[in-house]
Amino acid sequence: MVRSGELSSRLLALQYGADLVWGPETVDRSMIGTTRKANEHLSTIDFTRLPSHGSKDPRKDQKESLIYRLHPEKEGKRLIFQIGTSDPERAVQAARIVAADVAGIDVNAGCPKPFSTSGGMGAALLQTPDKLCSILEALVKEISMEFEIGISVKIRLLETAELTEVLVRKLCATGITGLTVHCRTTPMRPREKAIRGQLKMIAKICRENGVACLMNGDVENRAQAEKLITEFGVDGAMIATAAETNSSCFRNEVDGGAAPWNEVVEQYIKTALEVENRFGNTKYLLNHLIPGKQPVYREVTTSKSYLQVCQMLKLEHLETKAKEIDEKLGITPETQSQGRRGKKNKSAMAAGGNQAKIRSIETDEKKGLSERGVQNQAVVTVDI
């Protein structure tokens, strides 16, 4: 789900009980050539690069593009870097750049969007299983052993249970530590009901090979996830759309369960301001977090700055910070009057940047995938 998981979204999910967070499908080519920088002001690690279309005149200052941002203290070893790739060598090259800062590397072999499949990545890899296996084997050999982190893969169901079984057995033989199955086939849309009939078979194969098995598809909250884990014998469950709508779906019932939308929105804005999240992305998420029937929803859709949003939502205590961040991001009255004229949505570019999908996995000892065997029962995995 592109754009639904910038750093601010991941941190909010962790605040509400997510145990691990997955980054976005970041294409290998977009990471290769980046520079790792410690952002002392934000306490983050930023991976940046000069735009490929920019001026090559060394006398001209060029603004670097932020490709990926992570917060080592708040997410650090609970963050899985999700890579979009179709080549073993590039996958290793890109993974090595970020491997020391994350808990694991996850290969996306389930995204059905054209920007991914047209490059032979995402769900297209399901049609080239030998290539997918070679990518995983390379990452296990070159990255997992060197950095002592886990390698995992996310897939979709194939046309028949027999084909899915063959694929899962091949993938488990590569040395991966985790496998996530989105319980839909590639052509299926999110509105179509998830198919769970193959889950027990997939979980059994994973268990036999010491691979953590995670499920995805139509999981609404932690309580439901726990029930599904018990029913199908998987190690974890993902939440996607529900998490995009209300990140407090990660919370246990004993901690209050789902929080009111206005509480979640306030916490999200606070977090977005703390990490100086791009306003366009923050606005996109707010349009999901604020119920469409609320009068303020339409107002926020027209907003052009953090300050305007805080005023619309009557968050007076955040207005000073909002104004400060607007200035840092270059949002001025002049830019607001220009609106979005001439701007294009860059979020699909390489599915990269610091967008993310959020998931959580909980084990008895809160271990990462690289430390987990099937003996460590996972409770829930969340993906937005």
Rank of each mutant, 00 (worst) to 15 (best):
R156L: 03
L157W: 06
L157T: 03
L157S: 02
L157A: 05
L158F: 06
L158E: 10
E159A: 15
T160C: 08
T160P: 10
A161R: 15
A161D: 13
A161W: 05
A161M: 13
E162D: 15
E162F: 14
E162A: 15
T164R: 09
T164C: 11
T164L: 11
T164Y: 08
T164W: 08
T164P: 09
T164S: 14
E165R: 15
V166T: 14
L167Q: 06
L167A: 09
L167I: 10
L167F: 12
V168A: 07
V168S: 04
R169V: 13
R169W: 00
K170I: 07
L171K: 07
L171F: 11
C172Q: 08
C172K: 06
C172D: 04
C172L: 10
T174A: 08
G175T: 09
I176P: 06
T177H: 13
T177R: 15
T177W: 00
T177Y: 01
T177A: 05
G178C: 13
L179N: 05
T180Q: 05
V181L: 06
V181N: 00
C183A: 12
R184E: 02
T185V: 06
T186M: 10
T186E: 10
M188H: 11
M188D: 13
P190E: 00
P190C: 02
P190F: 05
E192K: 11
K193R: 14
K193I: 08
A194H: 07
A194F: 04
A194E: 05
I195E: 11
I195T: 09
I195Y: 11
I195Q: 12
I195L: 12
R196T: 14
R196S: 06
G197F: 07
G197Q: 13
G197H: 13
G197A: 12
Q198W: 15
L199G: 01
L199E: 03
L199F: 08
K200Q: 14
K200V: 11
I202G: 00
I202F: 04
I202M: 04
A203R: 05
A203S: 14
K204G: 01
K204Q: 14
I205K: 00
I205L: 09
I205Q: 02
C206Y: 04
R207C: 06
R207F: 00
E208H: 09
E208R: 13
N209A: 12
N209P: 01
N209C: 07
G210M: 02
V211I: 12
V211P: 00
A212Q: 13
C213Q: 02
M215Q: 04
M215K: 00
M215W: 00
G217S: 03
G217M: 02
G217K: 01
G217L: 01
D218C: 03
D218R: 04
V219Q: 01
V219A: 01
V219P: 02
V219I: 15
E220N: 10
E220W: 10
E220V: 14
N221L: 03
N221I: 03
N221V: 05
N221K: 07
